[in-house]
Simulated assay, not measured.
Amino acid sequence: MASVKPVPVFDGHNDVLLKLRGAGGRPATRLFREGSDFHVDLPKARAGGFAGGFFAIFVPSPLDLAEMKAEMDKPEYDLPLPDPVPQEAALPVVMEMAALLMQLEAEGALRICRSVADIRAAMGAGEMAAVMHIEGAEAIDPEFHVLDVLYAAGLRSLGPVWSRPTIWGEGVPFRYPSTGDVGPGLTEDGKRLVRRCDAMGIMLDLSHLNEKGFWDVAEISEKPLIATHSNTYAFCPQARNLSDAQLDAVARSGGVVGLNFATGFLRRDGQMRAQMPLAVMLDHLDHMIGRMGEDHVALGSDFDGAVVPEEIGSVAGLPALIEAMRAHGYAEARIEKIAHGNWLRVLETTWGG
């Protein structure tokens, strides 16, 4: 009996470039091509129908990740926002990670996509489609010189903040229980950045921005509101998750929310543990579809940046989630929208084609 071809998944967020940097940088691209213990690599992608997505460029803070995970296993936690990263420290890291993405393209591992036509062409050719994304815009100067250069290199998506302050605004802490209504909104520079990204056709990602910043973007931006990897506060009261009012605003704008696979933002207890049934992910999807409609819900895994459900494990496990959607009663047309169609639609609007 012939095997069923997996439903193609275009994903809102992964951190595999950070993993490659930590594994040695340029020499480590072999791991991506040939196989690794990462969530995302070529062999696993082929097995799981991972067609591509947003590849994050992220400047890490000097955090003790083991200590962070231990905190997020407690019934309540409140990790303070890390210190800001100066632009002169962030820029070399961003250049290094952008160069890693370019090297992967040069080696034939993926295609950097600057338009929806590029994404469709890559998917049609069986190539991994990669959108260059920045998570936390510390490397960008107020005059936008770096932004212009990165755009020429392929940057098409940008999150003004990670969960730490920048000159553009302030992110949400890893705090449970908590809403995202913490700290001030966008700075005046942040408002300028929103307008500049709108004009250039760079997608703005609201996933780590606090609630006041979210509403600032909603007021200023003329483009759809997008949170690449966020979940619903109604099922997990974590500061990173979106309130019903925010979900409603995303839908009104024609935007999209990508379901984050990070278990600490899915589980009702807010704990970052892999032991979690896929039914919890379906609870979040049901709620988001109920509030926003099926045209505004996508996937934003956070692969290689978070603990994901053990039933998925990596991109090779994506068919388990697709099959869970089927068993839950989702029609094939809805599954196709969530898996990739809604991302392509919203990017056509945001990028202009």
Rank of each mutant, 00 (worst) to 15 (best):
A51C: 08
I112D: 05
G136Y: 02
E76M: 07
P86Q: 08
V59Y: 05
M97N: 03
Q103L: 13
A90E: 05
K74D: 13
R114T: 15
R114A: 15
A89C: 04
E71F: 12
F55K: 08
P92I: 00
P142Y: 06
P62S: 15
L81G: 09
G49C: 13
V131P: 07
V94P: 02
K74Y: 01
V149L: 10
G124R: 02
Q87C: 06
D118H: 09
A122D: 06
A51K: 11
Y151N: 00
D118N: 07
A66G: 15
G53T: 14
A152Q: 10
D118M: 14
A153E: 07
C113Y: 01
A98E: 02
V93E: 02
H133I: 01
P80Y: 08
L101M: 12
S61Q: 13
Y77E: 14
L147W: 05
M123S: 02
P142T: 08
A66F: 11
E143N: 00
M102V: 12
G52C: 07
P92Q: 07
L104N: 09
M102E: 14
D83N: 13
F54K: 09
H145A: 12
A125N: 01
V94M: 01
A152N: 14
M97I: 05
E67M: 08
A47E: 15
A117Q: 10
A47V: 14
S61T: 13
E67N: 12
V116T: 03
D73L: 15
R120Y: 06
F55I: 07
G48F: 09
E107R: 07
F54C: 06
R111M: 05
A99M: 03
L100D: 09
L81M: 12
L150R: 03
I140C: 07
